[in-house]
Amino acid sequence: MLVGAAPFGVIFGTLAIGSGLPVWLTLGLSLLVFAGSSQFVAVSLIGSGTALPVIWLTTFVVNLRHALYSATLLPYARELPARWRWALSFWLTDETFAVVENQLRLHSNARDGAWYWLGSSLAMYCNWQLWTVVGVLLGQSVPVLATLGLDFAMVATFAAIVALQLRQRPVLFAALVAGGVALLARGLPYKLGLMLAALAGVAAGVLAERLAERVNRPTDPQASP
C-alpha cells in the first residue's frame, strides 16, 4: 500500500506545481485534506480557474464515500475516547480503510486494534507527505512539463487511475457514460457538465452492477435488491 501510493503522491505534487498552484497550497492539500482523488480533481479545477463553491461541492461528492468508511468502522471505535475518534477520522482514506477494516474484522481486540489503526494511519500519512514533497521538487525542477503538455499529463494520469479499476466491469460502464455526458455537456457553465456526468456515470455503474447480478444469478430469489 505504501509503495502503491508513492507514484500518486509524486504525480500529484508534480501536476500541482505544473498547474501553477503555490507550494504551500500543494503541501497544504496533502497535509490537511489528505484525500488523493479529490486532491487530483482539485488541481484540475483550480488550474482551470473554477469558482470556489464548485470546488467545494466537487470535493464533497468525490469524498462522500468516506462517510461509508466512517460508518463501517464505527462499531470498532465505539469504546474509544472521543479524542481518538477525532484523530482517527482525520486520517481515514481508501487505503487506511482497506487495511484497517480487514485487520479489525479478523482480530477484534479493541485495544490492539486502535493502535494498529493509528499506526496504519500515520504510516500512510507520512508516506503521502514524503511523496508529495518529492513531486513538488520534481515539478519545480522540470518546468518543461508546463510547456510540454501539462494537460496531457493530467489526462494520462487520470486515465491510468481509472484504467486500473476497469477489471470491475461496472466501472467501465460508469466511465464510458460519465465521459460521454461530460463531452456532450462540456459547454455548460459552472462545471455543471461535470456534476451531470458524475451523476450519470454513477447511475450507469449501479445499473450495470445490478444487471450483472441478475444475469449471474437468475434463479436465486435471495439475490440482493
Partner: peptide, 21 residues
C-alpha cells in the same frame, strides 16, 4: 454501491473533454 463509482466517474468526466475536444 453508488459511492464506489464516484471517483472513476468524476476522473473520466474531467478528462473526456480534454482528450476528445
Amino acid at each position: 454501491r453508488a459511492l464506489r463509482y464516484v471517483p472513476a466517474a468524476v476522473l473520466t468526466a474531467l478528462i473526456a473533454p480534454m482528450a476528445l475536444a
